[in-house]
Amino acid sequence: MNTGTMKNTNLLPGKAGMKVHLKQQKIAPYIFVLPFILSFSIFFLYPIISTVIMSFQEILGPKDVTFIGLKNYRNMINEHFFNAIWVTTRYTFLTILVLVPLPMILAVFLNRRKTIGRNFFRSAFFIPALTSVIVAGLFFRLAFGEQDTTLVNMILGVFGLPKRTWLQQGSTAMMVMVIVCTWRWLGVNIIYFLSGLQSIPVEQYESASIDGANEWQKFLRITVPGLKPVIIYVVTISVYGGYAMFSESYLLFGPRSPGDIGLTLVSLIYQLGFFENNLGAGSAVGITLLGIVMLINMVQLTLTGFFKKESD
């Protein structure tokens, strides 16, 4: 191999050819990454920078823009903003609480050869992720309606429980949002965990069986640690997903949720930016949201030792 390349360089016709060759080698990598750089800067970097700038502006029209310093940020700090943070944080926490253990356990069952109809269940769990969120939202809004005849109240009625006004009460509204989220994303997380399970060597389970470990011990000592990278990944995207939640809240409550019970940070951006035509204020909330999510993910990734592994 070595001699071959040496021979090759020797064969190059003089200095000029050498130069072209070197130039090409230098340029080529840039050309290859250019598509990404371009799309990134047009669709991500530019909007982010312009959002940062807009968050310091009052925007009344295309030609009517004034810099107002930190006023947008100062105005942002009010009851609704804190309500939004509180709702979003609770929502994110609860979805992670459900959407990590539940799909993990289901994935373990679906991974077993003994499970009956596992292929059917694999696709059945995944179908909601393909459903339009509009359709799903409509269904859940009506299913959790307040009449005696709505789906959920009818089921409660069978068990002799009183009917509820699901979507006009803080705690039940949150529950409905978490249920919608679980229904939608359970299948996707199961796929992540299933693929994670494939990478755990069968030998580990075999030797554990020889040592007399029971199923539960095997799950706790082999499966869970083996799935750690997947868990970190799922938690990370769930934090992003949770804080970026908008459509579920919008479909259940419309653009305004009564008493802010379903107000997420993104709904707040929507309200400020579009309903009040105050794009500057919306941008300020957007930048704050970016900061919050970055902070949480950094803390979480540091705690789970993600960065340590990288440097190893």
Binding site: I59, L60, G61, P62, K63, F274, E276, N277, L279
Partner: peptide
Amino acid sequence: LIALQSGTGAPDIVDIECGRFPTFLKGTPA
């Protein structure tokens, strides 16, 4: 709102609900 803010893409004639109308009268109306 986006079409008027960005200065392009708006229709010739448009229905605007009264509750939203003041939003479109901010600054110099488009």
